[in-house]
């Protein structure tokens, strides 16, 4: 059993929870290989996907996961809703729950929004990304994909490269990987790495080449221009020159490392096309595993419903 009722962040779950989610995801991955990629476990469950921020991959992945578990799904996006008329977060979600929804998957631009919601409603909440804080299912599918390629992550070297400051993927990845025993280095320009991040048990590296030489897996993050309210590097071209991962740089290493990216990719900025589309890149495996991981999370949390009523 999971030790939590909601999946708000990786910070709150244990290594045992992560192992259980991975084990369950193995079973769902096998279901996804069948001619009928669907099981009826959650046909008595309704899930609302509440997205206050744009998303393609995560939302599609959650929706597919829920549908393949047999759940009913309602989708909600802030841009086409009463939120634009000034409705508050709690009112919006309480109204959705009044229509007998059992579980809420939420993405919100404000860090901490799902925690706030968890204090006010009874349904299980899955955080699909909150501001610059956490994106737990992304971290789970990242670690699951790494484990699938290089085995147990205990002692493995993982580099997280790019915009650490604004990235919820980075934070969740750090929590998840360190809980699994991996050694983590964050790399990027000094302006994009938060102060005191070493206190989370990670190393900091400002030189991309050195970080790549050290690691077994490089998880390259997107430059989040929409969250940068003041200039933190001079131009994208300069960033690409110093921190973009290119074919020639990978070829100059004396080993083959795995390249990951949570998407969407800024091609030619943090990742060149000749890297993103190469055999070293497992970006599409990440997307494939995303559905299995989300099926596992939704399935395991759906059992927590009895405590509510």
């Amino acid at each position: 059993m999971l030790s939590v009722k909601h999946l708000l962040g990786i910070r709150e779950i244990t290594a045992e929870d992560i192992a259980l989610i991975f084990r369950t995801a193995d079973n769902f991955k096998q279901v996804l290989q069948r001619p009928i990629k669907k099981v009826p476990s959650l046909r008595d469950t309704t899930v609302a996907n509440v997205f206050f921020e744009n998303s393609t991959r995560t939302r599609l992945s959650f929706e597919l996961a829920e549908k393949r578990l047999g759940a009913d799904v309602v989708n909600f996006s802030a841009s086409s809703s009463s939120v634009s008329k000034g409705e508050t977060l709690i009112d919006t979600v309480k109204n959705i729950l009044a229509m007998k929804v059992d579980m809420v998957v939420m993405r919100h631009a404000a860090s901490g929004a799902p925690w706030f919601l968890a204090n006010h409603i009874n349904a299980s909440i899955i955080n699909a990304g909150d501001g610059t804080n956490e994106h737990p299912t992304q971290a789970l599918l990242d670690a699951y994909s790494m484990r699938e390629k290089i085995g147990d992550l205990n002692g493995k070297h993982i580099a997280i490269i790019g915009d650490i400051m604004h990235s919820r993927v980075a934070l969740s990845n750090i929590y998840c990987l360190t809980k699994l025993g991996a050694k983590v280095t964050v790399a990027g320009p000094p302006t994009l790495i938060p102060k005191h991040i070493q206190s989370m048990g990670v190393r900091v590296e400002y030189n991309l080449k050195k970080a790549l030489e050290w690691c077994d897996v490089a998880n390259v993050l997107r430059i989040q221009l929409e969250r940068q309210h003041k200039p933190l590097f001079s131009t994208l071209r300069e960033y690409a020159l110093y921190y973009g991962v290119s074919r020639s740089m990978l070829d100059s290493l004396n080993k083959e490392i795995l390249i990951m990216h949570p998407g969407p990719i800024n091609r030619g900025v943090e990742l060149n096309s000749d890297v993103a589309d190469s055999g070293q890149s497992i970006i599409l495996d990440q997307v494939e595993n995303g559905v299995a991981i989300r099926m596992a999370v939704v399935y395991l949390l759906s059992g927590k419903r009895d405590n509510i009523e």
Partner: peptide, 22 residues
């Protein structure tokens, strides 16, 4: 064959059932 995901008592028992391999 594992039948966990096809059971009709997924949410009537107190703990959710964990699957075995198919």
């Amino acid at each position: 064959l594992d039948i966990t995901f096809y059971r009709d008592d997924v949410h009537t028992t107190s703990d959710i059932q964990l699957p075995s391999e198919t």
